[in-house]
Amino acid sequence: MSAPLLGVEGLSKRFSRGGKNFAALDGVGFSIAAGETLALVGPSGSGKSTVARILLRLVEADAGSVHFQGQDLLALRGPALRAVRAKLQMVFQDPQAAFNPRATVARLLDDPLRIHGVVDRSERPKAIAALLARVGLSAELAGRAVHEISGGQRQRVAIARALATRPSLIVLDEAVSALDVLVRADILRLLAELQREQGIAYLFISHDLGAVRAIAHRIAIMDGGRIVEQGAARAVIAAPVSATGKALVAATPELPVSKETVS
């Protein structure tokens, strides 16, 4: 079997808070194949966002390794790290907090195209229009400021921005959690479509097993800084083995009728 797109092994990280030293991550390991979605699921404080922050090199791991496209991600510096960042993108929960609110949509999409030299200057307006179309937004939105568009539109812009550098993996950290119900379903559909067309892999970080069920191939359940269960999405949801997995399944709200009509 060929090497996975992303391979994480023995990842550990300790933080100190209030004079106490605790393990945020304790030997976390998982892998993601090209074009696959792995969901990292767990309660608040389980360590799932720390994994994302280490992948983005926002915090340094105490121990463990991360290999992305065959390279040792945690050892990369400078231009080599920048080159890898083009292929490993991120979408956060709240795009409003991640973007300069006065920047125009065009500006937000132009940045990655320019910084990573994806297309020539003269081609960039066309590339921006294509990105907007790809995420289902009208080209007219390009001139609008981030604070003038809706939350769902902002999240589409964040996805377009991530797509600009033609990534092979996008980390989605609670990326649909703050969206309205109907918008959330649309964004999940868009993500699935992009994956089918472009073979992008996702690390889908969420506490919402319903959203995970809709998009993930495999699930890793985290609690207390460890992965307590890992397997095919359907199998884990149908018959969770760990206490945390069982608690998550039991806690996910179901429509009363679907219990009776779905076998």
Binding site: A185, R189, A192, G210, R213, T252, L255, S258
Partner: peptide
């Protein structure tokens, strides 16, 4: 709204 509910019984056609 009911159709967009993401339960554990039904998927949107993505993933599994």
């Amino acid at each position: 709204l009911l159709g967009a509910h993401l339960g554990l019984g039904a998927a949107l056609g993505a993933g599994a």
